[in-house]
Design a protein around this nucleic acid. Structure first.
Length: 558
RNA sequence: GCGCCCAUAGCUCAACGGAUAGAGCACCGGAUUUCUAAUCCGGUGGUUGCAGGUUCGAGUCCUGCUGGGCGCGCCA
């Protein structure tokens, strides 16, 4: 079980084509990649294929003729899937799914419940998804929020289709930025103790530094006034900031399996090993006292310094070592989720990985564009340097986890995201999150009332319901929408595009809301009543799975 | 100057290279003695930024332009 209708059609089509070839009606050598698609126009059926166009040239026949030959052979043998197949337009073959196939599909949802739309296409292959990876120098920003939602949801989707997923956070708590952090905290601390201290512009300006300094004074009084060792300040700041970051992530419902410290790459000798290997490969040279990596040999426009003349590594070197390590750990797929500001740097890292002879094709880099917060039609300015940025924590406090996650996910990541705080705060149809949750809550309400009035139908009883009573156009449309869920999950996972799920769920919910306003579940006719309850139950299941994948809660009442 | 991303209805956005480009918002007009009106129904709204090209077929692919975002450190 679990075969998608489109897959079933594909094999039926392939068989028909093969038969046509054997009988001499068609001639082609290799079966091209056969595609079964969803026509946008309802009158074009539930599925269609462009097969005829694809082989028209080689077969030396007009597409319409090929389509006819196929339809002749498809006509009699799709009884369990479609009840009509026809040639349309210049050579499309359109399939019309039969009600019995729809009832079977609906029944599958009821049978499998929340295990529906779980696949094994990943075959247990391992995937690592790295995201957020913000260094502990300040609170997470709204931009990190988008990345967090995207990374976590992609991980959810991949798990759903059968991959073993590791969520990983990579961070660097060493180096110059941490020194700047320590100095920033120290100076704020001394200021709080009443000292006249010049706070330079190159230091971290955020209010959170003052907060950390305040907590420090609270705890240690003025005992650190003469503390020379910046380490103390750094440790305290890092601890405070990192626990804040983790708290923010937790309130978004995100847990990482691994926090990977960049420093460990130096300590374990993995960085040194990479330098060795690059040297042996003849991909590095020295100039001006620094060590350069010949990125230009791998299609990059510039060579890059990997070891400064001070002897310190630039960030690229541990990044290369880190990616090599990911591959060494045996992941079949390594996914990096980055913000648009990183688009210029990862190709250097990939070039480095390639220079090491690793298979960089296993690495998938997903770049998401920036988030703009909009309030009252105006852009809310953000800046990590200045004190006025809106943190992810603040945003979550304002709109809540469900809305935040959904808004971050509802647009494809290549687009800039306008996060409209006005809409996000609304609890009405303007807000898609409430729209979806409301559909779920409504069904829960129906079930409750149903139970009170007629007695509950448990799962076993629900499976015995005669679904053939669902004959209304709107009912068949809802079932067809339900049938699209599995392929939506599959494609959202395969393409790493969570927004497809959002688009789908809104369509499903719209169909249900519309149905709800037109037809009633609780009616005299017992058979029809039960069938409608079963259908509502299926919608509820799919909404719950779908929203669950997005990390959005499904309230039973609102 | 070079590189990456983006441009679709007044606004925010959808649309595996497929057929007549779809939603929501906004605007106009309607629906509830009924399982949740946080809902629904109808209407208005388009030369898919511009110019070429590839293709049986282009919003989608290629080239050039225009406009916007982001990068181009021995910062991360």
């Amino acid at each position: 079980m679990g075969e998608l209708l489109s897959d079933r059609l594909k094999s039926l089509l392939a068989a028909a084509a093969e038969e046509a070839r054997k009988s001499g009606d068609l001639s082609y050598s290799a079966v091209p990649s056969v595609r079964i698609e969803r026509p946008s126009n309802r009158s074009h059926g539930d599925f269609s294929t462009n097969f005829a166009f694809v082989i028209a040239k080689e077969a030396k026949l007009p597409p319409a003729r090929i389509a006819e030959a196929l339809v002749r052979r498809l006509a009699g043998r799709g009884g369990e899937v479609y009840d009509r197949v026809e040639v349309a337009g210049p050579g499309f073959v359109n399939f019309f799914i039969s009600p019995s196939a729809l009832y079977r599909g609906l029944s599958t949802i009821l049978e499998q419940g929340e295990e529906y739309a779980r696949f094994k296409v990943g075959e247990g292959k391992t995937v690592q998804v790295e995201f957020v990876s913000a260094n502990p120098t300040g609170p997470l920003t709204v931009g990190h929020g988008r990345q967090a939602a995207i990374g976590d949801t992609i991980a959810n989707l991949l798990e759903r289709v059968g991959y073993a997923v590791t969520r990983e956070y990579y961070y660097n708590d060493a180096g110059n930025q941490m020194k700047v952090l320590a100095v920033s905290v120290k100076k704020r601390y001394l200021q709080l103790l009443g000292e006249e201290i010049d706070f330079g512009e190159d230091l971290y300006q955020g209010e959170y530094i003052v907060d950390i300094a305040g907590a420090l004074r609270e705890r240690c009084g003025d005992s650190l006034r003469a503390e020379k060792d910046l380490k103390r300040f750094q440790e305290i700041a890092e601890e405070s900031i990192f626990s804040g970051i983790k708290k923010t992530l937790a309130s978004m419902g995100i847990r990482f399996d691994v926090y990977y410290n960049e420093n460990s790459l130096f300590e374990s000798g993995k960085v040194a090993r990479v330098v060795d290997l690059l040297r042996k490969a003849g991909c590095v040279y020295e100039r001006d006292g620094a060590v350069w990596f010949q990125a230009t040999r791998f299609g990059r426009s510039k060579d890059r310094v990997i070891i400064k003349k001070t002897g310190e590594a630039t960030y690229r070197l541990p990044d290369i070592a880190y990616h090599r390590d990911k591959l060494d750990r045996g992941f079949d797929i390594v996914i990096d989720v980055f913000g648009a500001d990183h688009h210029g740097t990862f190709p250097d890292v990939l070039a480095g990985v390639e220079a090491l002879g690793c298979d960089k094709s296993k690495i998938v880099v997903l770049i998401h564009q920036f988030v703009t917060l909009v309030r009252d039609g105006r852009q809310v300015k953000m800046s990590t340097r200045k004190a006025q940025f809106v943190t992810l924590e603040e945003l979550l406090g304002e709109v809540g986890r469900d809305v935040a996650r959904y808004f971050f996910l509802m647009r494809k990541m290549g687009s800039h995201l306008d996060f409209d705080l006005g809409v996000a705060r609304k609890q009405s149809l303007d807000n898609p999150v409430y729209y979806l949750q409301y559909a779920h809550a409504r069904i829960c309400s129906i079930q409750k009332k149903y139970g009170e009035r007629y007695g509950l139908l448990d799962r076993g009883r629900l499976l015995e319901v005669d679904l053939r009573r669902l004959t209304k156009e709107e009912e068949l449309e809802i079932i067809k929408d339900l049938m699209r869920f599995e392929e939506t999950v599959k494609s959202a996972a395969a393409l790493f595009e969570p927004h497809r799920l959002c688009v789908y769920l809104e369509e499903l919910a719209a169909g249900f809301h519309s149905y709800y306003n037109k037809h009633r579940v609780m009616i005299e006719d017992k058979g029809l009543r039960e069938a409608r309850l079963a259908m509502a139950r299926a919608v509820q299941i799919v909404l719950k799975i779908g929203l669950g994948l997005l990390g959005v809660s499904v309230p039973e009442s609102m």
